[in-house]
């Protein structure tokens, strides 16, 4: 499996995704410029955290007009794994690949800490190595992570099992339904505010995120649920 990590101007967790996949797991992964218009050689694509275009206007609002985006939409539509963490999640919602939006945290402040999450859908290409209902700890680091969607959308997300990660003890940002990460109906596009790529090495004190990437690398051999 060949994986692309997209680098937008202002991305800064690109190295974290790359190192998690390349150095920790030995995966075949490459950085791809936001100007790249052909991702046909890749089997999966990752959108990193950071401040694409300085988060000016609205987080992710400018990045979604990047030249690379039509390719990401194509891959999503073809059922290929598409992953966004933090700013990557914001870009996926701005691009309409995931429903809802991320608002400023209720505290109005950036927050960086490790929080417990429940894994609620283990049938995605990013979570099949977890067990349903398992509580894991992952770092968050964002100022705009409060998930919002209208009631109808929220009801659909819940009904379809599209809520993949939910904040377990405390809700750090005011997300509706304590949502930390969601997938599309088909399950191949996942966006989450927490940073699994920061939790892949014992040296840094946490390996709870490692299975997100292990799941991806073995997803070809596992049948994940989809329509």
């Amino acid at each position: 499996m060949k994986i692309a990590v997209v680098v937008f101007p202002g991305s800064n967790c690109d190295i974290d995704l790359y190192e998690a996949l390349h150095t920790v797991l030995g995966a075949d992964v490459e950085y791809v410029s936001h100007k790249c218009e052909d991702l046909s050689e890749f089997d999966a694509v990752m959108l990193p955290g950071g401040f694409s275009y300085g988060d000016y206007l609205r987080c992710g609002a400018i990045a979604r007009f990047s030249k690379v985006m039509p390719e990401i939409v194509r891959m999503a539509n073809e059922g290929k794994p598409v992953f966004g963490t933090c700013n990557g999640f914001q870009i996926l919602t701005e691009a309409g690949l995931l429903p809802g939006a991320l608002k400023q945290n209720n505290s109005l402040k950036f927050v960086c800490k490790t929080v417990p999450l429940v894994v609620e859908n283990v049938q995605t290409p990013f979570t099949h190595e977890y067990t349903n209902g398992e509580v894991i700890n992952l770092p968050i680091a964002h100022a705009d992570g409060s998930y919002y969607a209208d009631e109808e959308t929220l009801a659909q997300l819940e009904e379809n099992g599209q809520v993949v990660f939910r904040y377990a003890k405390e809700n750090p940002n005011g997300s509706l339904h304590d949502i930390a990460g969601i997938c599309n109906e088909r399950g191949n596009v996942l966006g989450m505010m927490p940073h699994p790529e920061r939790a892949v090495e014992a040296l840094l004190g946490n390996e709870d995120g490692l299975r997100v990437f292990k799941s991806l690398l073995t997803s070809g051999t596992v049948k994940t649920e989809g329509k």
């Binding site: 190295i15 190192e19 998690a20 950036f110 960086c112």
Partner: peptide, 26 residues
């Protein structure tokens, strides 16, 4: 200190609140 991103670039072994910040060298 929790309003500072202390972990980006995933090399922070010891962050704010420690006697010293410790960064591993890849």
């Amino acid at each position: 200190t929790q309003t500072y991103d202390s972990q980006v670039r995933t090399s922070t072994v010891l962050g704010p609140g420690s006697d010293a910040g410790v960064m591993r060298i890849r």
